[in-house]
């Protein structure tokens, strides 16, 4: 905590293992939660798999990244989103058919409460269009700010605000989710 986050990114760029460990501790949990709310399209691919692949891609391309720790979060989430899309396309080419109850829902080795929370959030977000689902997952489920969400999803900050507003209003309009409210 005493080390500035910008210094973490700089050290990670030079190949410092401890810096990578610190970055992993800071972002891996949120990344897995966020990926858990997104459908992978392949029952054989879990959120952990996508997250691990995203970390490896980030390490390969860290030399191209020029930003601080906050921007690193959005950059990492963007990589994970693209990795997930690639996996989805690959599974579509293979013709893999997802099951009704994907086994990926029972993979997580974290606390059971977190697993239940992710499943609940995923059920809620399934009722939203893809764009609104992604934005609400970033802002409400994971807690990313607007700028980081925009960077992660590859859209503008205005589009993030609009999608977030529409998504939350859509959730409020549903009777069984009347209690859902946006984060302050």
């Amino acid at each position: 905590m005493t080390t500035p986050t910008d210094d973490l990114v700089r050290r990670a760029r030079t190949g410092d293992a401890e810096a990578w460990r610190a970055l992993y501790r800071a972002h891996a949990g949120r990344l897995v939660v966020w990926l858990g709310t997104r459908p992978t399209g392949d029952a054989a691919v879990s959120a952990d798999d996508v997250a691990a692949e995203a970390w490896l891609v980030a390490a390969r391309r860290i030399a191209e990244f020029d930003g601080d720790d906050e921007e690193f979060a959005g950059w990492l989430f963007g990589i994970a989103r693209r990795v997930g899309l690639n996996l989805h396309r690959r599974s579509a080419r293979r013709g893999t058919t997802p099951t009704e109850a994907p086994p990926e829902t029972s993979h997580h080795e974290g606390p059971e409460e977190s697993r239940v929370a992710i499943d609940w959030a995923r059920q809620v977000l399934q009722r939203l269009p893809p764009r609104e689902r992604d934005v609400v997952a970033c802002t409400e489920v994971v807690g990313l700010d607007v700028a980081t969400t925009a960077q992660a999803l590859g859209i503008s900050a205005v589009a993030v605000r609009v999608a977030r507003h529409r998504g939350l209003r859509r959730l409020r309009d549903q009777s069984d989710l009347a209690g859902v409210r946006p984060r302050p």
């Binding site: 030079t14 460990r21 949990g29 860290i62 809620v124 859902v180």
Partner: peptide
């Protein structure tokens, strides 16, 4: 909707792999 992020600890070999790739 907020889901508490779990504290994940990376494996040593995975961290070394990340550092090597970097």
């Amino acid at each position: 909707l907020r889901v508490p992020a779990p504290d994940l600890e990376p494996e040593d070999w995975f961290v070394e792999q990340l550092a090597l790739l970097a």
